[in-house]
């Protein structure tokens, strides 16, 4: 089955009304903050790179995988979650960068 997770460009998000709520996770000093968030199905998590280096956010969690582009400093991307579950989120470039997104109904 294909991943049910959609990826939406942050620029788009600002101009279109959001269906669910947005939760912001920033990347700073090679860490995600906060390191854990809870959202509801339909909500979006905005991953914002507020660091000085490039990051590349993805989730390897089976069935809930997603990946966004390599983010340059200052870029942000929103990910919406259409299925409940607990996702491990990582940065492909920096293996110690990990966090958790829990999606509930």
């Amino acid at each position: 089955m294909r991943s049910a997770v959609g990826v939406i460009c942050a620029a788009l998000m600002v101009t279109t009304p959001a269906a669910g709520a947005d939760v912001v996770v920033v990347q700073r000093n090679k860490t995600f903050a906060p390191s854990e968030v809870q959202v509801k199905v339909g909500d979006r998590v905005v991953f914002a790179n507020e660091d000085e280096v490039t990051h590349n956010v993805y989730s390897p969690t089976p069935g809930l995988e997603f990946q966004i582009r390599s983010q340059q400093p200052g870029q942000s991307d929103a990910v919406s979650f259409s299925k409940p579950g607990a996702l491990e989120v990582r940065c492909a470039i920096h293996p110690k960068m990990t966090m958790r997104v829990t999606v509930t109904r």
Binding site: Y58, P60, Q67, A92, I93, H94, P95, K96
Partner: peptide
């Protein structure tokens, strides 16, 4: 940065890509 990057070295080796084939 203890990070992983393709800096454009001519190579057949997939490096970290072998372990993260979808990225």
């Amino acid at each position: 940065d203890s990070g992983f990057h393709d800096v454009g070295v001519p190579t057949e080796d997939l490096g970290r890509g072998k372990h993260l084939p979808k990225l």
